[in-house]
Design a protein around this nucleic acid. Sequence first.
RNA 1: GCCGCGUUGGUCAAGGGGUUAAGACGCCUCCCUUUCACGGAGGAAUCACGGGUUCGAAUCCCGUACGUGGUACCA
Length: 504
Amino acid sequence: MSVRVRFAPSPTGGLHLGGVRTVLYNYLFAKHHGGEFVLRIEDTDQSRFVPGAEEYIFNCLKWCGLEPDESPVHNGPYGPYRQSERKELYRSYAETLVTRGFAYYAFDTKEELEKMREELKTEENPSPQYDHRSRKNMRNSLNLTDNEVKELLEKNTPHVIRIKMSENDVVSFTDMIRGEISFQTGLVDDKVLLKADGMPTYHLAVVVDDYLMKITHAFRGEEWLPSAPVHLLLWKYLGWEASMPQWAHLPLILGPSGKLSKRDGAKYGFPVFAMNWTDLKTNELTEGFFEKGFLPEAFINLLAVLGWNDGTEKELYSMDELIASFDIKRVHSAGAKFDYEKAKWFNHEWIKRLPVADLRLQIESYFSASGIDVSDTAKFEQVIELVKDRCSLLPDFVQQGGFFFKAPVTLELDAVKPKWSEEKKQFFVEYVDVLKTISSWELMTVENAFKEMAAAKAIKPGELQLPMRVMLVGGKFGPAVFQIAEIIGKEETVKRMEYALSLF
RNA sequence: GCCGCGUUGGUCAAGGGGUUAAGACGCCUCCCUUUCACGGAGGAAUCACGGGUUCGAAUCCCGUACGUGGUACCA
């Protein structure tokens, strides 16, 4: 049987680091086994509908290179892939469960539920559940007579269908990452399966859809572990146990202070979403890795090894290498704290190893946004090659390479002033004159002229190089100074030096 | 509170009865470089705690602590 996995986000906001990693592990597992990766939209909560969120998810996946094989936009034989469009399907399954005695109708209103929770609430039990104890005192088909239930249903009384958790069983399963896990059913509440609006909850939908879509392996975040017994029981009660997927609950990705939140990102200055997301209600922007200047290759790479390794010392992986070596069983069971410094290191590594032409396409926009013309492709690529060792985020290229195309606006005078002298000034005035006479403008001719003149005047060349650098670059950074002069050309070099001399 | 999951340097982590307890990021020192980087060589820093089991425990078992998630007609 072919491997089929799914990622099932609810389109309610930005796509989190952890979400992307869940997609990634699903994707890698599917591709490693030659299977299919399905994207299903879990939009059963109408009240949380956010316009644009679904399209946003697709954009993120596209940028990451994690294209689904089947989805609302890719189609496939098991559609529709949006749960809101499958609404009619779910009710009959829920009703089958009622008929079989595994679920029941509950007519309790919001107020009645609140009242129950309020009354049962104690210091030891701050959050009472709708469970095998409390259901005895609620308005549901377990306590009402058949006629009463019939009548309520006929009158279209709002109601939900709840799973009837058994009182004293143990449910267990083998998680691909954590091994044997078991739960006492008596401690799990009677989760709602079908809501009053006729939509299924996640619990029903995930089981029905995984079954109908022939999902073989179900990977999801660790936050789902506590509700696993409900899902397990549903597979059993629906009579589908034999086709139940193998489960794996992925560890959480944590922030500097516990669970990684949007707030952490804002607070500590790093992205938590794959791409920029603006909350429609609050207008609050949460930065994305894309906009921050990460390469998708690096983003994928760093996420892959956050919680997984292949047992070797290898850390840098291309997508193909990940597909080849990924093994869900080698995923760590413990949560991992996200380290932004290391994330930047991955990006730096990928900047160094990516072909210049690829890099060029991804950084052009940063230059044009800064009003720098990089239409001379050959020169642009030469510059990229020269400065890429110094860039860990894509926007760094503007700082590190911009001066090749545009004279620095401000010069770091403090770097020169303390050691500046009339003697040095005289040197540069004369040097500029010499430069003007050079006919073959090359690195060696420029440098040799410099050294000869320095020797003649008995000044250490090193003491002169820094001022010259500041003249051409504006600051204390960048590649070899004569190389810069060679690339920007005679006219520009002379121009920058003469301007700088007027300031020093 | 209850339930689940987890706990190897600051962070990511290998190792799953006998190791000098790998490696990476970050940090520090030095070399290269009269800039900033890259690169190279070093360094500081770890098995949460307490009990067992065992000739021997980071590794197995039990407790405790701590962290984290769940405890919704959210996913």
